[in-house]
Design a protein around this nucleic acid. Structure first.
Lengths: 227, 227, 227, 227
DNA sequence: AATGAATGAGGGTTCATTCAT
DNA sequence: GATGAATGAACCCTCATTCAT
């Protein structure tokens, strides 16, 4: 549902050309700033994140931040854009070559999402978008196009396949897709919003929760004979 | 799309004694301010909403706002109380005197929520809290206590009743509650966040969506014999 | 050193003409407001005293205050003026007809001051003037003329008399006058300023303190033979 | 009339390394701000002094003030520390190593106070505290602890020493301390309050006045044989 | 005359942004 | 390029003053 976790960023330039410490630093700067900004924007929101904090977390001074990004708003957009490069091609391939029933694929899809996105820092970007969509409509549109549409398309295709194979009965695909997406959104909220503030109120196992939801859905859309 | 009538506001002047315009104003003020605040908080977020704007939208000056609410934070709490938490007593009573199966009650609960909260501006509060929770822990805690806990308690009681009556089989109530809450959250996001930015992508019927979700859940938790 | 204690103000109009309750109220208003204002100005200073508090303490509404005094500043001036009507004529007479040594008169003078002014609310006006002199120079000048000058003149005359009688030796009268005034000022500070904030640090008996100071002075200015 | 050099400020740039103007500014800033603040606080009172004025008088913008002092109240405390309380260690040492009789030390103490505090702008702080004590109890407590208590302790120690040495006879130390402090307070009032408004009325020589008071006191507390 | 709701200028404080070094 | 001191526009909130009732 979201972007690739950008963990390997700093190392990205670790190729073989000999680069001076300073120079490597210089090239890494924007990435380090984006990293720091992502963390803070997710945690505190756009308005409440102070530029100086971002700079400090990236280990540079306030002035340097503005050397790379002309304004806080541009920084925000850059953060979102940098974290929404789709890995949908990869996933499409993976799911297309999946060996197993459509039901298994649905389950696998949800669990994969949790492992690769939900449980990682990457889920923060979704929370961020949800929070700031109204203030940055153009980013919301961007996210819609780059993430939401491919994501729902992927899920829809899985379901269509199940129907085509006779595993699922015909259904209104939109609602079924939402049945898969809603629990994901819910988990993101738990992780990054209310759940982060009252952890004691939300002591649940995300993987199990997703399984329960998958069970409910699959039981509901299973073809008659398939039971 | 319009909020629930902040109870008994309009009725206040319904007597026959002649009330000066000034006085009528005075009684209407808090409601007008809460109305304006709800709009703006939902639209722009808590931090980004300026007190003066709230006042202006309510047709008064900055100072007047603080005549009725001692701080922006208290204003927010009042908004929550007027629109959500202040109504739980009513709902608890209503659900307790409900005539019908537990399954019907679950369905009724979800539909009522949509009519009274989800479809109204009040749902914006939840979106707002989700967005700002990390940033205003005190508000998040307030919402958790005033809305989330009573809300989940209410739903849990409905489910427990169903189990007690033999309509539902024993289950892990937490996950079942989340199965009811997650679709609500999802609808809120549609309405106030991404969905508000790409309406064409979310042309769904919320009431039907909730029904579908209710069906899935109820089918999943129905007692064996009850089918 | 200061004004007459205005305790008998409200009763002042209790003459024999039959006046309606309302009317009596009306005539008493300005005095009640000045009373309340004196208390508050002394306690909190001019800037920190809110007009509304003054009105509330006088039992009227904010608006009424401005009916009688066109601004807070005018109220302040009125407070000072109302509390600085000298009783120096009376005291001059009293001291002139005093039977006893000049030394006794000095002692009597200091103790009288404490009983009639220092220990009463009237001392507050001095504290007020000291605090606000720089902000209200014209009031300071007024006080200087109406209180300080007559007061020092009175003390000076007592001392001169002692010299004339051969009880005191000739001396620089200015410094001697200050020797009498300074302890009074010090007591006022204790009562209304720092001493009011850290009472535990200033557990002294004012009357005794004044006596000690009188002793020191009198011993110092006693004529040789008088010892 | 001019303040004691906020210690070691001017010397900071006395080295030979070339320091940028900017940097020199930075080191001078706190002192310049404290200077400006002292002037304005004394002149107008704490509440009536606007932060922006302080900044303007120091030649910087409002924001810069808050770069160096986190709040107006902290600014005030810093003023007190820089001008008074920070110097007690020095004074304690000086008085401890004083060569001479206890009587001389009392006289020296009073004259030193005049030269270093009374005659300088620093004395305005005391006037300020007297004026605002009731209004800013925290500041009053701070002053009580940082200035009054160390100050009276210092004086008391001097007197105790005199008694121990047989120069003074046993006495009630509290009143004796007040005999020393009261004239100081009186001079402060002359300088910063009423006296500042009617200078012609207070044409006295402060140093001589203090000496007269010292004489009176010392004569009063001298041991019998010491005369 | 009395009220108290309403006003809006003003003060403390924050923080994105600039720019001399 | 990098720094961080400096700026000043904004924001929350207070309170003297006004004025319709």
């Amino acid at each position: 549902m979201v972007s690739p976790p950008p963990p390997a960023r700093a190392d990205a330039a670790s190729a073989d050309e000999p680069v001076s410490r300073r120079e490597r630093r210089k090239e890494a700067r924007p990435g380090e700033l984006l990293d720091a900004a992502l963390d803070l924007f997710v945690e505190k929101g756009f308005a409440a994140t102070r530029s100086e904090e971002v700079a400090a977390r990236a280990g540079v001074s306030k002035g340097t931040l503005f050397l790379y990004f002309p304004s806080k708003e541009e920084l925000f957009k850059a953060v979102v854009r940098a974290n929404i490069s789709g890995r949908f091609d990869e996933w499409n391939q993976e799911f297309e070559s999946f060996q197993g029933t459509a039901a298994d694929l649905v389950r696998y899809c949800m669990q994969s999402w949790w492992q690769r996105i939900g449980a990682t820092r990457a889920s923060g970007i979704t929370k961020l978008i949800i929070s700031e969509a109204r203030n940055f409509p153009e980013l919301a549109a961007f996210y819609q196009q780059e993430v939401v549409r491919p994501g729902t398309a992927l899920i829809r295709r899985i379901l269509e396949q199940g129907v085509a194979r006779g595993e699922f009965r015909p259904m209104d695909l939109d609602y079924a897709v939402y049945s898969i997406v809603a629990p994901m959104m819910f988990l993101i909220m738990m992780k990054h919003s209310l759940g982060a503030c009252s952890p004691q109120d939300y002591a649940m196992d995300p993987a199990r929760y997703l399984d329960v939801q998958a069970d409910l859905l699959l039981r509901g859309i299973a073809a008659e004979g398939a039971r």
